[in-house]
Design a protein around this nucleic acid. Structure first.
Length: 1064
RNA sequence: GCCGAAGUGGUGGAAUUGGUAGACACGAUGGAUUCAAAAUCCAUUGCUCACAAGGCUUGCGGGUUCGAUUCCCGCCUUCGGUACCA
């Protein structure tokens, strides 16, 4: 019997789905275990082999935990709001809801034929069903299925994951985003009490105001919050009260800097901006202030830091969150702006944050971010032009550019001066783009002798560099070593080391009332508004410009329909196009926009929520995903608690993973979740890169003498020079052999004789120019046109790119090979490998095993389909091991079996060797799974099956546990074998085999005998010898004497059970 | 720039605590089987030298150690993140 993976996999996938094998129950006596994957954004391109890597790993772990007797929750869903669907909507007018649904559910029926609703009258396939929408496809095209969207669900299903699909969520489903909106309202209705260090309902803040005003309230709030008394509070109008409360709420409105692109009418992400212009269309981009919803994540800065110590996440990921939060201790210092500055001058102060208050006497200038609000106020008329043009120039640079660029030093003098708090000397105030507006206060006290950037700035603009470090030469560079610091030229700080000087400086500043010790965080409040269509609408309407929440019972507020998905002509977000987008208070319903009267009908919020909104609580929603009354029941969350294992990419380190921790802590504060970290353990899976196939196209450079005798040399595509044929492609083997490491080679070097021959035969009469050198272009070929030995299918290549149909192909030894390069998997590089095709050819079990076999889970690694034959061959061998009967029939022997073959009882005890390899495998695999080292498990299985095959093992006692060991990795084949072994129940809950030490104990060891650290020979010795006995045995060995050649060893190192090393 | 990760045969990788470098695979070469192909099986395969003996070898340069892929110092290269891509 052959290993028929197609039938086996289809059969068991169907059976699992029908039986609900992987449904997790919210009530169970078993211990719970929650394995979570980062849910995908369902893109039209579908899955490539890189996507399932983490899902396979988590599935192995989930299945392993089921074998270990746990009640496992392993859900999957879709992060289905996002930009690509919106971009497509802008281009085609297709509703993102429809494209999203297609991307998830696909366009094929159960037989794999396209659904009739996607076939147009003329039998062509509707554009929305196509992956590559650039050219028309009809149902008569032979391979139309390759270009039809199969849908994420179908692609995931065929990989045999043990997901509990009954719990699926989609962030764009109103039933789901109802609860995203609900959490937003909870945040709006909360403030952060720094006394109790917890978020509290806004009512407690209001009652505090009503009792004592806000002077005594310890809260996280906006910097510009005024102090008011009870009387003042009571005298405030309702609107004033609302404005004040906004300064405390955990989500609030504020003016934030964004990258505004006037031409596109939209805000751009940093990576959508290249060299100061938009990536799409190359339009100018400006920094601009816009009113945005913000999340007061800074309230949680310290707790987000502290929490990192309590979770088992990768250290690099923790490091990046730590750096992101960026805690620094120092002092805030207030500098008076000297009144000789013009206009409003006089009472202006500049707040700076410094980590080095000890260097305050080294200040020789101040630097403000060009965006700093005081810049326009303090700039003197003479400097106005210079300052303004500088501000304009920096507005065009992205923050990342400004941070990355340390070489060009730019800035402008405002003409204004600050006053040193102690010396009262005037300090010139500059602006410079190395100061970022959102970082600290957006202003620096510049100490050139102690900070390299300040030093460079001072040198560049000829500003003083006073030295305040004892015994340090600062003529070449700044001195930033805190440990070796001794302060001098600094009045009361003279002679003090760093730590004492800091303390003293802060104390003196406090005496003056011009500063205090302060902890600063780099973390900023998160912008929560997006000027997009395809996102969660806010449950917010505006009365007199003040935001009001819509009551819980009216949620969800569903996304309105719009004609166009672009911003409006007046620059409002796409929701501004909606004709039905107003809140009627009386009816408690969304009504037509034109009914807005400011009395009972009010405008709704036009922004939508960002991508991370929907993913910040989804892990909790999975626990009770269809609950319509609560975000989840308390029973469900009490049972499941938190995620035990979360697998996903490290690119989410400071986005999703930080925001989710913030929301979880908030939910914890409000008593909605039992723990304040949502995932105990997290593993980052690496990227799978593509292995591109590159075909080498000849380029020749020619020399030509023109009429007046100038000699010109130029490089030209061969095809353009010679009309008689198209490009000449040359086998990579030959190119490499002739070219070596060089890029190009002189024609006179007498290489590439084959090319010369070729030119002579085909074009001798056409070449009237002198060839100078030979080089090559690399052309990407589709990877599936290349086989495991890098040979190109030339006919396939010609068919695929008809431009090359008439090209010539120069072979080497009858083969035409391509070069290989590892690059990111992408459509444009033709190196994307689709899991469907792999499943079709080798099966899901082979794909799962191979993805694991590629290498360590956390590392990025290149995909090369060629290698899959190794694991596929292994599965065939595994199958054979259980099918050693006549004609490949299934055969397993029991110890007490009555089986008789020709009168001989075939029952047999497994051999000691069989037990040994089985138990070695159990030990290794269990260790591997616990260490997430899945690649080494696959090797271990191979060794085990190879050995058992060699031993002709057929014992149930061996083969039954073996199938369980392999089943997390290759669930289909092992389920089939399990079934054949006579079990009615799924293998998935069979108990994991127990490792028994007694089967693997060794009595002797093959010792490596080294001389001066180099292994020369091995020697088998009993393990119970002591050091001296081993030494004696080794010294007595003839090869030892041979090696020593008469010398006496200086020293003999014996490590029992490990090695012997003879020195001398 | 800053932060993080990784460099081992032709390729993916293994070596769990400092102890036989290259497990397990892919590819390649030769052979068996076959009318032939596929499939399967066997042998060889880090480099170097004609063989053997030997020498060299974990990105580069140092160091610690009886012994370093592993620990320390200094460099180089590639990749990821860098606040509106998801």
């Amino acid at each position: 019997m052959q290993y028929d993976f197609r039938n086996i996999e289809e059969k068991w996938q169907k059976t699992w789905a029908e039986r609900g094998t992987f449904k997790a129950d919210n009530t169970s006596d078993k211990k719970k275990f929650y394995v979570l994957d980062m849910f995908p954004y369902p893109s039209g391109a579908g899955l490539h082999v890189g996507h399932p890597l983490g899902y396979i790993a988590s599935d192995i772990y989930a299945r392993y935990k089921r074998h270990k007797g746990f009640n496992v929750l392993h859900p999957m869903g879709y992060d289905s709001f996002g930009l690509p669907a919106e971009q497509y909507a802008i281009q085609t007018g297709q509703h993102p809801k429809n494209t999203t649904e297609i991307n998830i559910e696909g366009c094929l029926d159960d037989e794999g034929n396209i659904l009739s609703k996607y076939i147009d009258e003329d039998e062509s396939i509707n554009n929305e069903a196509l992956i590559d929408k650039s050219k028309p496809v009809t149902i008569y095209d032979a391979d139309y299925r390759d270009n039809v969207i199969k849908g994420y669900r179908r692609q995931l299903d065929q990989l045999g994951f043990s997901f509990d699909w009954s719990r699926e969520v989609r962030t764009s489903d109103p039933k789901y985003y109802k609860w995203t909106q609900w959490v937003f309202i909870q945040l709006f209705d909360s403030w952060y009490n720094t006394d109790s260090d917890t978020a509290e309902p806004i009512e407690s803040l209001i009652s505090a105001f009503e009792k004592d005003g806000n002077a005594a309230v310890k809260a996280v709030c906006d910097d510009d919050t005024p102090i008011f008394s009870v009387e003042e509070w009571q005298a405030f109008t309702d609107r004033e009260k609302q404005e004040l409360l906004l300064k405390y709420r955990l989500t609030y409105l504020a003016n934030a800097d964004v990258n505004w692109c006037p031409a596109l009418g939209t805000v751009l992400a940093n990576d959508e901006i290249v060299n100061g212009v938009s990536e799409r269309g190359g339009h100018p981009v400006m920094r601009k202030k816009m009113t945005q919803w913000m999340m007061r994540i800074t309230a949680y800065a310290q707790r987000l830091l502290d929490g990192l110590d309590t979770i088992d996440w990768p250290q690099p990921l923790k490091d990046s969150q730590t750096n992101w939060i960026g805690r620094s201790e120092g002092a805030s210092v207030s500098f008076r702006v000297l009144p000789l500055a013009p206009a409003e001058g006089g009472d202006l102060n500049i707040e700076v944050f410094t980590t080095r208050p000890d260097t305050i006497f080294g200040v020789s200038f101040m630097t403000l971010a060009p965006e700093h609000e005081l810049v326009t106020k303090i700039t003197i008329p003479e400097q106005k032009n210079e300052v303004e043009s500088y501000i304009e120039a920096t507005a065009k640079r992205s923050e990342r550019d400004r941070m990355a660029d340390v070489k060009s030093i730019t800035g402008a003098f405002t003409g204004a001066y600050g006053e040193h708090p102690f010396t009262k000397e005037p300090i010139p105030i500059w602006i410079g783009d190395y100061v970022l507006a959102g970082y600290g206060t957006g202003a620096l006290m510049s100490v050139p002798c102690g900070d390299q950037r300040d030093y460079d700035f001072a040198k560049h603009f000829g500003i003083d560099i006073p030295n305040i470090f004892e015994g340090i030469d600062i003529s070449e560079e700044a001195f930033a070593d805190k440990e070796k610091t001794v302060i001098t030229n600094s009045d009361f700080l003279n002679g003090l080391p760093y730590k004492k000087a800091v303390k003293k400086a802060i104390a003196e500043l406090e005496k003056l009332g011009q500063g205090e010790g302060k902890i600063n965080y780099r973390l900023r409040d998160a912008v929560f508004s997006r000027q997009r269509y395809w996102g969660e609408p806010f449950p917010v309407y505006y009365v007199d410009g003040m935001p009001q929440m819509i009551a819980d019972e009216h949620l969800p507020i569903k996304l309105p329909e719009v004609e166009k998905y672009l911003p409006t002509e007046t620059g409002e977000p796409p929701l501004g196009n909606a004709t039905e987008w107003a809140w009627d208070l009386k009816q408690s319903a969304v009504v037509e926009t034109k009914l807005i009267d400011g009395e009972s009908v009010f405008p709704l919020e036009l922004n939508t929520m960002p991508g991370w909104a929907g993913s910040s609580q989804y892990f909790n929603r999975y626990m009770d995903p269809h609950n319509e009354d609560e975000i989840y029941s308390q029973d469900a969350i009490t049972y499941w608690q938190d995620v035990d294992l979360y697998i996903g990419g490290s690119e989410h380190a400071t986005g999703h993973l930080l925001y989710s921790r913030f929301w979880q802590k908030f939910m914890f504060d409000r008593g909605l979740v039992p723990v304040d970290e949502f995932a105990k353990k997290l593993i980052n899976q690496g990227m799978i890169t593509g292995t591109s196939a590159l075909v080498y196209r000849l380029r020749l450079s020619f020399k030509q003498t023109d009429i007046i005798g100038n000699v010109e040399e130029y490089l030209i595509g061969f095809d353009r020079m010679l009309k008689s044929f198209h490009s000449l492609f040359v086998s990579f083997d030959y190119v490499k052999m002739e070219l070596g490491e060089k890029e190009s080679i002189k024609f006179s070097d007498n290489k590439f004789l084959k090319v010369r021959d070729f030119l002579e035969v085909y074009n001798s009469d056409k070449i009237d120019l002198e060839i100078v050198s030979v080089s090559f272009d690399k052309v990407h070929a589709k990877v599936n046109l290349v086989d495991s030995s890098d040979k190109l299918d030339i006919d396939g290549f010609k068919n695929w790119q008809t431009d090359y149909s008439y090209s010539h192909y120069l072979r080497e030894n009858g083969n035409f090979t391509v070069g290989r390069e590892v690059e990111k998997m992408s459509k444009s590089k033709y190196n994307v490998v689709n899991p469907d095709a792999i499943c079709e050819e080798y099966g899901a079990d082979s794909l799962r095993m191979y993805e694991m076999f590629l290498g360590p889970l956390e590392q990025s690694k290149p995909w090369n389909t060629a290698g899959i034959t190794g694991v596929h061959g292994f599965l065939k061998k595994l199958w054979k091991l259980y099918h050693s009967g006549p004609n490949g029939e299934f055969k397993v022997t029991d110890i007490n079996s009555d089986d008789n073959v020709n009168g001989v009882n075939t029952s047999s005890e497994p051999s000691n060797e069989s037990f040994k390899i089985l138990h070695k495998t159990i030990k290794k695999v269990e260790d591997d799974i616990q260490n997430f080292s899945f690649n080494t498990s696959v090797s271990t299985f191979m060794i085990c099956v190879n050995e058992l095959t060699g031993q002709n093992c057929t014992s149930r006692e061996i083969l039954e546990p073996l199938s369980i060991l392999i089943s997390p990795y290759a669930p289909h084949i092992t389920e089939e074998l399990w079934h054949k072994l006579g079990h009615a129940e799924s293998i998935s809950t069979a108990p994991f085999p127990k490792f028994k030490e007694k089967y693997v104990v060794e009595s002797s060891k093959k010792y490596p005998i080294s001389f001066n650290g180099k292994m020369r020979f091995t020697m088998e010795l009993p393990l119970d010898l002591d050091k001296q006995q081993i030494e004696d045995a080794v010294m007595a060995h003839e090869k030892t004497q041979q090696q020593l050649d008469g010398r006496t060893p200086k020293k003999v190192i014996v490590v029992p059970g490990k090695i012997v090393n003879i020195v001398g």
